[in-house]
Design a protein around this nucleic acid. Structure first.
Length: 357
DNA sequence: AAGTTCTTATTAC
DNA sequence: CTAACGGTAATAAGAACTT
């Protein structure tokens, strides 16, 4: 704040990443202390409705059985039938999240919230060293624990990517600083999937290109920027920088919403047009209310069939504020095409609006 | 040929 | 049965269509 503590030598940034430890499950443990120490899975109850969902979060005891986020609940049940299975109580998690990040914001208003349990802070103007940033990080952890009785992990480095990697290394319950001198050394030895934007598909391509089962960032450093752009398009150029620990993306305090949508998976696949259209209208209603007062310029309808094949259809129109009836009028014909053009049962339908301005 | 619109693929949380 | 699989949003790329 004061001009004395403004910048470190080269005007390098100081970025902090905070991530709540196994957030949803940790909240449930707090609310129900008798769950502590036992495997706990938040997602859905596999006994009720047979559970078509996936694991949202599990505690560390459950992870010992191989249970992970994103895994089908049914599979997690096989891995550990004795675990405690809970449905998602999003309203509760939202409230807790609001309180936590309200507290965090008191340490720095330059904050980008990524999800209910994650955020970045840009401390560049607040601290003159990484050591100072670490002290702030410790205070944040203490404050959250004092106020909410919940633990988090914190990573600090010179950009968002490295702060996140530092945080990952600190988990659970830890804090970790990666100073600029250490950045390249650390990231070089990690798997390429630590780079944001490199998921399973891109990793697979790198695997083939490098002829390595488990390519490391170091291996990927042999590619020139041109080669990467050639291979991965626009993203390739960013990968080149990221393979060297560089990431200039700013901490964005607010980003604008461009689309709003809702989807629904049926408990059982269905072909019943009345069942489907009834849900469809509910979705539109929900989306309409969430988009309240905003100008809309298009709608997209999603349909996933029983075999998981997923398609979308969209229509656009002059931007304007429309009523719910208009959205139904635009969306329904798209939905009907899906029902007409195939005999398959429907697993999921979705409705999304594209906003203007 | 250029500019929109539509569709799919991929990623992230 | 082999199989398993949410919901929300962003972004990129390419095809299809218009002007």
């Amino acid at each position: 704040m004061t001009s004395s503590k403004r910048k470190n030598k080269k005007g390098e940034r100081v970025i902090l990443h905070i991530d709540m430890d196994y957030f949803f499950a940790q909240i449930e443990e707090r609310e129900n202390p008798q769950f502590r120490g036992k495997p706990l899975v938040v997602g859905a109850d596999p006994k009720k409705g047979k559970g078509r969902g996936v694991v949202s979060t599990s505690n560390y005891e459950a992870r010992e059985y191989g249970i992970k986020s994103g895994m089908p609940i049914s599979r997690s049940y096989k891995l550990c039938p004795d675990a405690i299975f809970l449905p998602v109580n999003m309203d509760l998690y939202k409230k807790v999240s609001e309180r936590i990040f309200g507290t965090v914001k008191e340490f720095s208003s330059k904050i980008e919230r990524i999800s209910l349990d994650e955020a970045y802070l840009d401390l560049s103007k607040k601290v003159g060293s990484f050591k100072e940033a670490e002290n702030i990080g410790k205070k944040i952890k203490e404050k959250i624990f004092e106020k909410e009785n919940l633990t988090c992990s914190i990573g600090i480095s010179k950009n968002k990517m490295m702060a996140k990697i530092a945080c990952e290394l600190a988990k659970p319950k830890g804090i970790r600083v990666i100073t600029p001198e250490k950045v390249v050394g650390i990231i070089s030895e990690m798997g390429v999937e630590v780079v944001p934007g490199i998921g399973p598909k891109t990793k697979d391509k790198l695997r083939k290109k490098l002829k390595k089962r488990d390519p490391k960032v170091r291996d990927a450093q042999i590619f020139s920027k041109e080669e990467l752009i050639n291979f991965f398009g626009k993203r390739g150029g960013e990968f080149y920088e990221k393979f060297r620990g560089k990431d200039s993306s700013p901490v964005k305090e607010e980003r604008e919403v461009k689309t709003i949508g809702k989807e629904h998976t049926f408990q059982q696949d269905t072909k019943n047009p009345r069942k489907i259209t009834s849900i469809f209208k509910q979705l539109i209603g929900d989306v309409y209310r969430q988009a309240k007062g905003r100008k809309v310029k298009g709608v997209t309808v999603t349909c996933r069939y029983e075999d998981f094949e997923t398609h979308t259809k969209q229509t656009s129109f002059p931007a304007g504020e429309y009523d719910e009836r208009f959205l139904i009028k635009k969306g329904t014909p798209l939905l009907l095409k899906f029902l007409t053009q195939s005999n398959k049962k429907v697993r999921l339908i979705g409705f999304r609006v594209t906003l203007y301005g």
